[in-house]
Design a binder for these strands. Sequence first.
DNA 1: TATGATTGTGGGAGCGCTCTCATGGTTCAT
DNA 2: ATGAACCATGAGAGCGCTCCCACAATCATA
Lengths: 387, 387
Amino acid sequence: MRALPQSYHTSQFLNKKSKQNVDFCEEFVREDGSATNLTGVMVSNLTLEDIAEQAGVSRSTVSRVVNDLPNVSEDVRRRVLDVIQQTGYHPNAAARTLASQRSWTLGLVLPQSVFQFFTDPYFPHLTKGIAQACNEHNYTLALFLVSSKEDEKKIFTRVTRKGLLDGVLVQSGHHGDQQIIGHLMDADIPQVVLGRPQHFDNVTFVDVDNVSGAYNAAVHLIRLGYRRIATITGPNLSAVGLDRHAGFTKALNDRGVRLDEALVVEGDFTESGGYYAMQRLLPARPEAVFVASDLMAIGAIRAVREAGLSIPSDIAFIGFDDVPLAATNDPPLTTIRQPVVQFGVRAVELLMDLIENGIHPPRHVIMDTQLIIRDSCGAIRKDLISG
Amino acid sequence: MRALPQSYHTSQFLNKKSKQNVDFCEEFVREDGSATNLTGVMVSNLTLEDIAEQAGVSRSTVSRVVNDLPNVSEDVRRRVLDVIQQTGYHPNAAARTLASQRSWTLGLVLPQSVFQFFTDPYFPHLTKGIAQACNEHNYTLALFLVSSKEDEKKIFTRVTRKGLLDGVLVQSGHHGDQQIIGHLMDADIPQVVLGRPQHFDNVTFVDVDNVSGAYNAAVHLIRLGYRRIATITGPNLSAVGLDRHAGFTKALNDRGVRLDEALVVEGDFTESGGYYAMQRLLPARPEAVFVASDLMAIGAIRAVREAGLSIPSDIAFIGFDDVPLAATNDPPLTTIRQPVVQFGVRAVELLMDLIENGIHPPRHVIMDTQLIIRDSCGAIRKDLISG
DNA sequence: TATGATTGTGGGAGCGCTCTCATGGTTCAT
DNA sequence: ATGAACCATGAGAGCGCTCCCACAATCATA
């Protein structure tokens, strides 16, 4: 067995710095410009000026080299670069931000209504896409997860503060959860909303075409011959929930399929939400269910199994999102794929454009979804029968 | 059906700002101090000085009010506060950071080896805990997801830059993925490592007791009477993987249970990794399997089901993490619970202490795990038999 | 050779705060 | 009455950059 470090046990706590300690730790500056400050933290206080002096040039020239600007002769550039290398100089981000009025930092705000289902694979996935896009363009990403009403206040003031963020991505959440958008407009901070916002149309947003996605899902079920088609919707307070519900309803209307009100149940985008919604749905004996998220679909399937029924032979399912779990679920889940990563990338690009080129009439970008046919809808069985 | 906004279709793209546009947008300053700059973005350029003037006091006094410092008379404080309210003044974060040498921002770095399984519910969960702790202490959280080697370089320079972060949380990743820790030490930036780092013992870290957690899991299986006990480990390149493997091995040794090498397979912490690992394990006919993560356990169970066997009667399972899915899995997963949120909170607290009180000998905090008994281990069945 | 454009370099004025120190007024024990 | 201590306030010097402008040196053009 691999040896563990000696200190491999809890609570090796040490002295908080005592008064005496502070008295003892006088400021002490070394020749190389580094210093030990009063708190005892070593700081390499190198500035542009220090580098300039050591390279025998001016501050301005060093700045040009650091920022890779033209009008610096090759040998000077090389000399400065050498000094920077040797000293391990890093330009100070705050000073740069203050002088240039650009922080190269974007904020991502997830409202309280999203906090609870942040563990839905959709969000980490989205975050990945956004983070990747930020890296590509040399932006830093600041994450604001609103976990409570108190958080919200703090976060609002932090986000609207000048000099911290160049722009903000706001996840559209529930109905009552969108003041942040207004706050940002008041503070004139560039923003892009992720998902259609409900109370603002004068703001740029990116969304997937939830209506047509749901529409296609429902049509798919109708084509497969199902007639008693149910849906577990997202929260009626959210735009996503409403749009997917709308698309579903429209498909049934367009195809002349009767929509029984008992076949519509509201979920909350959680696994257990899907489970309980399905339990309420079971007495109505649906043949097929369109569930507004994969995670809820997984919960719903659990409920069906518990009732001793099987999928898709007794009840067919189609989800929404195409999270990684959908493919490996038992049975593999037919679903509507969202271009999650592309979605994040597009949002970041729009935001960057807003930052660089200033205000323009708000843009609304809607991205397409894709029907992914797997086993849970019974398409394969039906194919065998009809083909 | 709910009416959709008129603009509800794809690609309403608008003019990139033309040359003409730029010429037209001359600088224009209003009386209230706000201005429309060349890029057309409205900026409320209010400064401390502006507020001071309007309130008839000095910059210093306004600063005291804003920062809630003592030595300001009540009526002056009120007057300043009024002006701030009316004007919607927000102090500039960059200026404050530059002057005070504190950014009130923490970084969270997830190395490349973690990027791929960032969608494992463990990480969003951890992120939530960290974000919450940051909010509580009025810190902003910057997220650095390393998605490629090129990203890594960019992120390293960004993270080690002074004036952006007061401190950094680094997720311990694979063996070859820990240079960032060294970089941060070189740059003298306070850091706390999440999980035991492999190449540094002079750094503060928080970890869960993976060894004893795995030990307890294995002991549980032994107590239930299983003897052919297999394990799907985490990557041998990671400390978590090694520690959980170590604890497992130790338990078997301590209890005199023979460990067949054919019963040890390396996984990669993904669902499909668990699936393939289990397929390799099946021919060795294990009675029970300890899987180093819940997500892998879910994959492994899928493989067992596909082979026509059932859980726990044919093969018993125990996972690690206790992600939300574990409880709702079919069958519900017996697992080792990590105090994820508490873990994040503790890490943030340690980091804050490091920032405020300066360097001290590194601390190593190890948190306890908890065995959560559900159905997949067969404990219930065994109880019926033996009880 | 005179003239202007172009390039490399340095100087200086901020960016909007914090923080130390000076100042004058008040309170209170001696 | 005297000075020590304590407040409330303001002035000023940075924090470490960027960016504009001045200037000299070089180059192309007439």
